[in-house]
């Protein structure tokens, strides 16, 4: 009961955020990249609902734009990284033997190399392009999931119905697709949803340091960085961006955890 309630709460929150992010710009009188030379660092007013930034941008419009960027990056990264994890994990787990050892050794190597540091290191080469940030983040987020998928696939390999399929003469790729992957579907869905929040935090963390999304484009990270200096005096630019970020992450993790409990009652709660 509480399980599904948690998932529903997350889903509702997320739907609200999506509605705000995609419908907000339509109703807002200001575009995100427009500058109002008459109002710098203004408080909320009828014209600027949440005030303006130091450079005269409309806080409401620019923050929604930033949230849109962050959300899209988060979704794309999660889908790609979970996809890589599923592919590597099932192949390693089902094949076993040398292929398994080689793949897992590679995974270990990538785990030892702190992913965030590597992304920081490579980020300057991106020249601010969000599309390139996506594969970079995805490439360093899939390893832990891959390990879990591998362990599960390896245990499924000796499950009797998988053995039965093998002894019926069903080939390995077909066994993986028909019998192994469907069992992991719930894990993968949950993992992908939790990865969305990890990816959004990672993206905004990078952007906060000036290493992710870069001007003229904005993300929640850059907005928080810009707003933080003046946060005490004019709280809106910082507060709205930070609040939206927290809300998104909270909604996604509620949804992910709720889904996990609904789909897989045997598992505990956190990763």
């Amino acid at each position: 009961m509480t399980r599904s309630r948690r998932a529903v709460a997350g889903l509702v929150l997320l739907a609200l955020v999506f509605a705000l992010v995609f419908a907000g710009p339509v109703v807002s009188p200001w575009s995100w990249d427009g500058t109002d030379f008459a109002a710098f660092r203004a408080g909320p007013s009828a014209e600027h609902w949440l005030g303006t930034t130091e450079s005269g941008r409309d806080v409401f419009a620019v923050t929604l734009r930033g949230a849109r960027t962050s959300l899209l990056i988060g979704l794309a990264v999660a889908v790609i990284s979970t996809g890589i994890a599923a592919a590597v994990g099932t192949v390693a787990g089902y094949a076993g033997g040398r292929l398994d050892r080689t793949l897992m050794w590679g995974v270990d190597l990538l785990i030892v190399l702190p992913p965030f540091l590597v992304v920081v290191l490579l980020a300057p080469r991106l020249d601010g392009g969000a599309p390139l940030l996506v594969p970079l983040l995805a490439a360093f987020m899939w390893m832990i999931t891959a390990r879990m998928v591998r362990a599960l696939s390896a245990s499924l390999r000796d499950r009797e119905y998988v053995l039965a399929a093998r002894f019926l003469g069903v080939g390995a790729p077909r066994v993986i697709v028909r019998h192994v992957l469907p069992q992991l579907a719930s894990l993968l869905v949950v993992d992908a949803s939790l990865n969305v929040s990890v990816a959004i935090v990672a993206e905004s963390g990078l952007s906060y340091l000036g290493l992710g999304v870069r001007p003229p484009d904005v993300s929640l990270g850059t907005l928080i960085a810009d707003g933080h200096g003046a946060a005490a005096a004019s709280p809106w630019p910082f507060g709205f961006a930070a609040g939206l970020l927290v809300l998104i992450v909270l909604a996604v993790s509620l949804l992910g955890d709720g889904l996990r409990d609904v789909l897989d009652p045997t598992s505990g709660g956190a990763r």
Binding site: V201, G205, I224, A225, A231, A242, V246, S253
Partner: peptide, 21 residues
């Protein structure tokens, strides 16, 4: 714990600073 996990370090730190000031 849910809330703490949803608040990134760079937001938490700034919030603490504001509260402290």
């Amino acid at each position: 714990s849910y809330l703490l996990l949803a608040v990134p370090v760079f937001v938490l730190a700034v919030l603490l600073q504001i509260a402290a000031s």
